[in-house]
Design a protein around this nucleic acid. Structure first.
Length: 480
RNA sequence: GGCGCCGUGGCCAAGUGGUAAGGCAGAGGACUGCAAAUCCUCUAUCCCCGGUUCGAAUCCGGGCGGCGCCUCCA
């Protein structure tokens, strides 16, 4: 059984088959870079990362693009407030978001285009819409998409156009639209736009691109006329994605995206979070507080992407413990003795079961919670085996390690968790010398001396664990 | 008002017709000089009511409760 995805277009789970066998083109809507990205943004990015990793794990050749929206009302306003150019304002935010993504183990996608680098493509797109009679210009140099000319409008969000409320809270006449539901593909220039360098010449008048147009242009240019997958937050279904469809299909005559995936919003400590409410927490804040990056990753993956996720401090602690357990397990199996004549165990069967269970869960609309469960079942079972046998067959052990690595190449928990354990060589030598001294004290049953050394190490945040194979040490914050 | 989602043990979270995965926390036990780590065992009938069915957490109806989108937003 293969991958099935819940397609927003049909509101059902469908078998996933890319247009071209073996190759997948994906476009994920990135953030508007007018400030730090919050944890909610990262739920989405981390989901993109999961899609990216899982598709590759399944053997697809993936082309994955996630944009940055660096020109819109908010970025312009923010640049204006700071008295700098648009680019000078947005650059640092883009860098910061990428850095935080790195910390969480979100692998870079194939391309991270920024809207302002695609103005040429946008101009072409607008021209095509005008040529096809799908858009009209207004006196101030704006261009609007004529929704009445695109009958399929509303198919993604499932809304009845005639029912749409008109007028209220929308500055309908701001740019001189024919119909309030029409949306801007190009906005006539304003003084503020010029001040921050957010204005470009166009045949129909100087101005700047509309938000929805940006994504259409980047997706068409960098992924192709028909995307296999288009991903975004649930809030983007309407109007953003609806408008992208209208523009893209209006211009190309081809289906824009075959499968649409939408990530549910998360909550923080039980409350809704949004930029406009100002109660967002950022990854930077969490890291400053000493939160284990892998724990953030774990919590964000601990529920399926279409279900609500409540991001909490308690949850973070639970996730920290869970990840540490995984790290301890990895150490344990890697260090477990092997012997050529070791009797066979159930490791091979357990390895197969883990891979099957993981695949079953992930194939079912990317159920990362189920995937995680499959991994932990594996941990429990293998631990039990390691308790039983003093030595493993080398082939069996390697197989189990490979499965662990394989599942983690998608989940990324060990990958991120391991990073916080890097130590320099001289420190390692000193610690190991102290451990040897303690071991000889213990051999003499000089418990006083042994405990003194343990305390000495503890003062430096190092925790010792005595096991059958000798004494191991860890950083206190990494210990269980 | 329109469209939609959810309600599983103390907390988090899978499971969509065949008798409840997993994580965290808790209890008891094994191991240990002490400890840590690890392992073993234990703790749920799935918001309520009614219906369909041999059989439902899973389907249908009603109720109660939480939430999202409809406007910039992942």
């Amino acid at each position: 059984m293969g991958l099935r995805l819940h397609n927003t277009l049909s509101r059902r789970s469908e078998d996933f088959h890319p247009l071209e066998a073996g190759r997948v083109g994906v476009y994920g809507c990135g953030p508007t870079v007018y400030g730090p990205a919050h944890i909610g943004n990262f739920r989405a990015f981390l989901f993109y990362d999961l899609v990216h990793r899982y598709l590759e794990w399944k053997g697809y050749q993936v082309r994955f693009v996630m944009n940055f929206t660096d020109v819109d009302d908010k970025t312009i306003q923010a640049a204006l407030d700071d008295g700098v150019s648009l680019q000078a304002y947005t650059d640092p935010w883009i860098d910061r978001i990428l850095e935080e993504a790195d910390v969480l183990g979100i692998r870079r996608f194939d391309l991270h285009p920024r809207a302002t680098d695609y103005v040429e493509e946008m101009l072409e797109l607008v021209q095509r819409l005008l040529d096809r009679g799908l858009a009209y210009t207004t006196e101030d140099g704006s261009v609007f998409y004529d929704i009445s000319a695109f009958p399929a409008y509303g198919q993604l969000s499932g809304r009845d156009l005639d029912q749409a409320r008109t007028g209220e809270r929308v500055s309908a006449d701001e740019y001189g639209k024919d119909d309030v539901r029409d949306f801007a593909v190009w906005k006539g220039v304003k003084q503020e736009d010029e001040e921050v360098g957010a204005a470009w010449d166009a045949p129909w008048g100087r101005g700047r691109p509309g938000w929805h147009l940006e994504c259409s242009a980047m997706a068409l240019a960098e992924v192709g006329e028909t995307l296999d997958l288009h991903i975004g937050g649930e809030d983007l279904i309407f109007p953003h994605h609806e408008d992208e469809i209208a523009q893209s299909e209006g211009a190309t005559g081809q289906p824009f995206a075959r499968y649409w995936l939408h990530v549910k919003h998360l909550r923080v400590e039980g409350r809704k979070m949004s930029k406009s409410l100002g109660n967002f927490i950022t990854v930077g804040q969490l890291l400053d507080e000493g939160v284990f990056p892998a724990a953030i990753r774990h919590q964000l993956l601990s529920s399926q992407y279409r279900s609500e996720l409540n991001f909490t401090r308690d949850g973070l602690e639970a996730s920290t413990r869970a990840v540490k357990r995984l790290l301890a397990f990895e150490d344990r199996i890697r260090e477990h003795p092997v012997a050529p004549d070791a009797p066979p165990t159930s490791l091979l069967a357990l390895s197969d079961e883990a891979t099957e269970g993981f695949t079953r869960a992930m194939d079912d609309d990317l159920n990362s919670a189920g995937g995680l469960a499959a991994l932990f079942v594996f941990v429990n079972r293998v631990n039990a085996v390691l308790d039983e046998v003093p030595a493993l067959d080398p082939g069996e052990r390697d197989r189990a390690i490979r499965v662990l690595e394989s599942l983690d190449s998608v989940l990324g928990l060990l990958e991120v968790g391991r990073r916080s354990r890097i130590v320099d060589a001289s420190l390692r030598e000193w610690v190991e010398e102290r451990i040897r001294a303690r071991t000889s004290a213990r051999d003499r049953k000089d418990w006083g001396a042994a405990d003194t050394i343990r305390d000495e190490l503890a003062e430096r945040g190092i925790v010792l664990e005595d096991g059958a194979g000798g004494t191991r040490w860890k950083w206190e914050e990494d210990a269980g």
